[in-house]
Nucleic acid binder design. Structure first.
Length: 534
RNA sequence: GCGGGCGUGAUCUAGCUGGUUAGGAUGUGAGCCUUCCAAGCUCAAUGCCCGGGUUCGAAUCCCGGCGCCCGCACCA
């Protein structure tokens, strides 16, 4: 059995993960989180909030999974997600149609069959009059389309960030490798809006010495501080670099092995349609090699611009100059009475066109195009006037930096990186060395033996811990060693044991998962002691 | 999606050249025992992925589906 098989087996046996719909034969690309798995997944997401909501001061929103057609048409997903593919009927190989030179398979010259590959799940809104829709392929669009509200909420100041944790859906061609490639998955995304020419982060100074292992676009591997990487223009801007370093900190915090993290830059041809620079945090698996778990992308103005063009809603922000600029310019003042009389219903269109024309020199005649028709305006139909205009600022579409985390993959890697097998009296013994903050169950509470009032005291302690919002687990089955082993296997960091000494001096032992060492403390201090370790 | 391998209680597996009640280990439950690391004893529950075919008879052979794994393709 290799590490992946061991983990999947453990995960199923101990209630972390179950294959979805198993009694119906299973469904590829879907996994259920069991009782222990949900506790751990929630802990990962809450640690993520600790970083982004608490420390970065971003607010979280929650938007629908079902997304109308137009939204994803505008964002480019409808066109970019539905690939035209060709499949060879002879050898079975598939190609993108644009890679095909003629109607024959480039490998075996067999005939090809053309078809569509739809990566988004389709659905419909409404029972009678059906509007086409999709399950969202990313949570980000929900944030972008709320930009005008959010900009108002943040009192019209850049930069600001908005986060969302939720489900995303991609109808993968062939999902495999368990929770690594799912059709329905959890993602945690932050969208941070910047002025296009000022992608600096206020806390960059604190982070600039953080070192990252980078694989650049040219496939060079370097170990470099983010400060230096930005200086040398290896990473495009401070904001990207900051969130890369923050991502590393987060991953280590939730239990990822520091030596198994690297950041790989997307090459030009693998960039998503919306991104102009992207770094993936990749984690190393003994089974799968390096796997992308976080994408940190500079999406530029792509999304806001797309929604603005599609809906006509202004997604621009206004920035005041420090000193208002005064400029002189010539404008066209149309003689409305004359134009109206001459062109009647076309007047509106003509005025609109005139506003777009820039005047530099004196002119006698104006030529404009309305549809196919060319119209010439004589000089008695307009006047040229020189005016002084005060411009107090400018409007622009903000740029977006987006760290996007695949929660399920991180979940798997935490298990893999913390899975330890040791020998204990000749037998295989499994310990999951999860960080206390991530551990599904925080503390096991046991009576040393099942008599003489010890179980009652242990139950009181468990109750006491739960009153303090600590997930504690009471167990009196089997021997004490077996109970410790059960807790070690699901990563419970501490076990409290009530013994005969407890009856004399009201102290209990606390046993540490990774060292099996024990200390003795007053039983009343147990909840506070545990809480301080989480 | 194509090709190959595989599918036995919750887990790991024996059986698979067709033939009694499908065997073991781990785990689980009940009870006994037990003064700190998967001890022991007694008892119990839980299984041949689904469907069709061949046959007197299928876990076993054949076909289809589903799932898992590997390779190719795909992974915005």
């Amino acid at each position: 059995m290799d590490i992946y098989e061991k983990i999947i087996s453990l995960a199923k046996r101990r209630g972390f993960l179950y294959p979805s719909y198993e009694i119906y034969g299973g469904e590829a690309g879907f996994y259920d989180y069991g009782p222990i798995g949900v506790l751990m997944k929630n802990n990962i997401e809450n640690r993520w909030r600790q970083f982004y909501l608490i420390k970065e001061r971003f607010f979280e929103i929650s938007t629908p999974v079902i997304t109308p057609y137009n939204v994803l048409k505008a964002s480019g997903h409808v066109d970019e997600f539905i690939d035209e593919i060709a499949t060879c009927q002879k050898c079975g190989a598939s190609f993108k149609i644009e890679d095909l030179e003629n109607e024959h398979c480039p490998i075996c010259k067999g005939n090809v069959e053309k078809g569509k590959l739809n990566l988004m799940f389709e659905t419909f809104i409404g029972a009678k009059k059906k509007e086409k829709a999709f399950l969202r392929p990313e949570t980000a669009q929900g944030i972008f389309i709320n930009f005008p509200f959010l900009y108002e909420f943040y009192r019209k100041k850049l930069p600001f960030g908005v986060i969302q944790i939720g489900k995303g859906f991609r109808n993968e061609v062939s999902p495999r490798q368990g929770v690594i490639r799912l059709r329905e998955f959890s993602m945690a995304e932050a969208e941070i809006f910047f002025e296009p020419n000022n992608k600096k982060h206020p806390k960059f100074k604190e982070m600039e010495n953080e070192k990252l292992k980078l694989i650049t676009e040219k496939d060079e591997e370097i170990f470099i501080s983010i400060g230096e990487a930005v200086n040398k223009k290896i990473i495009g801007n401070e904001a990207l670099a900051y969130y890369m370093a923050l991502t590393k900190k987060f991953l280590i915090d939730v239990g990822i092995d520091e030596n198994k993290i690297r950041f790989r830059q997307h090459k030009k041809d693998e960039l998503a349609h919306y991104a102009n620079e992207c770094w993936d945090a990749e984690l190393y698996s003994e089974r799968f090699g390096w796997v992308e778990c976080v994408g940190i992308a500079d999406r530029s103005a792509y999304d806001l611009k797309a929604h603005m063009e599609y809906t006509g809603v202004d997604m621009r922000v206004f920035k005041k100059y420090e000193m208002p600029k005064k400029i002189k310019k010539k404008i066209i003042k149309p003689r409305m009475d004359k134009i109206g009389k001459k062109y009647k219903e076309k007047t509106k269109e003509i005025i609109k066109k005139l506003k777009e024309i820039e005047i530099k020199e004196k002119i006698e005649k104006l030529r404009i195009k309305i549809g196919e028709e060319e119209i010439e305006l004589d000089k008695e139909l307009f006047e040229i006037e020189e005016v002084e205009e005060v411009i107090s600022g400018e409007k622009f579409i903000p740029h977006v930096i987006e760290p996007s985390y695949g929660i399920d993959r991180i979940f798997y890697f935490i298990l893999e990186h913390n899975y330890k097998e040791i020998e204990k009296e000749g037998e295989k013994y499994v310990i999951l060395s999860l960080p206390a903050s991530i551990a599904p169950i925080k503390v096991g509470v046991f009576p040393l033996v099942n008599k003489d009032g010890l179980p009652e005291i242990a139950k009181e302690i468990e109750e006491d811990l739960r009153k303090n919002n600590i997930i504690a687990f009471y167990d009196d089955k089997g021997s004490i060693g077996r109970r410790y082993a059960r807790m070690d296997e699901i990563g419970t960091p501490f076990c409290v044991t009530v013994d005969y000494q407890t009856k004399n001096d009201d102290t209990v032992t606390i046993r540490f998962r990774d060292t099996t060492e024990q200390i003795r403390i007053d039983r009343k201090e147990v909840p506070t002691w545990i809480a301080n370790k989480l």
